[in-house]
Simulated assay, not measured.
Amino acid sequence: MSKRKKKIDKRQMSLFDVLKRVAVSEQEPAEEGELNIANKLRLALITAIRQCPLKRFQIAGEMSHLLGHEVSKTTIDSWTAESKELNRIPAEYLPAFCRVTGDREPIRLVAEHGDMFAMPGPEALRAEIQKFTEQESKARAEKRKRMRFLEEMEG
């Protein structure tokens, strides 16, 4: 049985790219408005809605259920309308929106511009496990150093 390769999201930067960008941004002075991602976020929402099999009113209904309060189709329309410049999706709504549409791009976009790296659950867990593995290796190395020092002290 052959394994299927996972599709890689071309929009997702690699961890190396994010770290490189953070290092460069720390060295250079910030440009005015460089973190104004309103248009990018609006386009990410539009793309997520277009690629979602649900209609906008269904997305609104599912989000309302997840959030515990009303989100209407009109509200979603205002988040994506170019003419409604002052209407933005609240940050606390992004997890529900991404879960309902199945598209993580809006959260990834916000995280990336905050110099962070967003990973889906299993990948985040793998990264955390790797961190523990590295900590164990460091602890073993420190233990070996102390054992050698103790042996030298005891002669």
Results as ranks from 00 to 15, higher is better:
Ala48Met: 04
Ile49Ala: 05
Ile49Asn: 03
Ile49Met: 02
Arg50Val: 08
Arg50Lys: 15
Arg50Glu: 13
Arg50Asn: 13
Arg50Cys: 04
Gln51Met: 08
Gln51Thr: 12
Gln51Trp: 07
Gln51Asn: 15
Cys52Trp: 03
Cys52Ser: 09
Pro53Asn: 03
Pro53His: 06
Leu54Glu: 03
Leu54His: 08
Lys55Asp: 06
Lys55Phe: 04
Arg56Gly: 02
Arg56His: 01
Phe57Asp: 14
Phe57Gly: 05
Gln58Asp: 02
Gln58Thr: 01
Ile59Gln: 03
Ile59Thr: 05
Ile59Phe: 01
Ala60Tyr: 00
Ala60Gly: 08
Ala60Lys: 05
Ala60Glu: 05
Ala60Arg: 06
Glu62Ala: 11
Glu62Asn: 12
Glu62Trp: 03
Glu62Leu: 10
Met63Lys: 07
Met63Thr: 09
Met63Trp: 02
Met63Tyr: 07
Met63Asp: 09
Ser64Gln: 00
Ser64Lys: 07
His65Gln: 15
His65Pro: 00
Leu66Phe: 09
Leu66Gln: 14
Leu66Val: 00
Leu66Cys: 07
Leu67Lys: 08
Leu67Met: 10
Leu67Gly: 01
Gly68Met: 09
Gly68Phe: 10
Gly68Cys: 08
His69Arg: 14
His69Glu: 11
His69Tyr: 15
Glu70Gln: 12
Glu70Pro: 00
Val71Thr: 11
Val71Pro: 02
Val71Glu: 01
Val71Asn: 01
Ser72Thr: 15
Ser72His: 05
Ser72Tyr: 04
Ser72Met: 01
Lys73Arg: 15
Lys73Ala: 12
Thr74Phe: 01
Thr74Cys: 03
Thr74Lys: 06
Thr74Trp: 00
Thr74His: 01
Thr74Asp: 06
Thr74Asn: 07
Thr75Cys: 06
Thr75His: 09
Ile76Thr: 09
Ile76Val: 15
Ile76Arg: 05
Ile76His: 04
Ile76Ala: 00
Asp77Gly: 09
Asp77Arg: 09
Asp77His: 10
Asp77Ser: 13
Asp77Thr: 09
Ser78Tyr: 03
Ser78Glu: 04
Ser78Gly: 03
Trp79Asn: 09
Trp79His: 10
Trp79Gln: 03
Thr80Gln: 13
Thr80Arg: 10
Thr80Met: 15
Ala81Asp: 13
Ala81Pro: 07
Ala81Ile: 02
Ala81Tyr: 03
Glu82Arg: 10
Ser83Lys: 13
Ser83Asn: 09
Ser83Asp: 10
Ser83Gln: 11
Ser83Val: 14
Ser83Gly: 04
Ser83Ile: 13
Lys84His: 15
Lys84Val: 09
Lys84Ala: 14
Lys84Met: 14
Lys84Leu: 07
Lys84Phe: 10
Glu85Val: 14
Leu86Arg: 11
Asn87Gln: 11
Asn87Glu: 11
Asn87Leu: 06
Arg88Met: 03
Arg88Thr: 13
Arg88Trp: 07
Ile89Val: 13
Ile89Trp: 02
Pro90Gln: 13
Pro90Glu: 08
Ala91Gln: 06
Ala91Lys: 07
Glu92Pro: 04
Glu92Phe: 12
Glu92Leu: 08
Tyr93Ile: 05
Tyr93Gln: 06
Tyr93Thr: 01
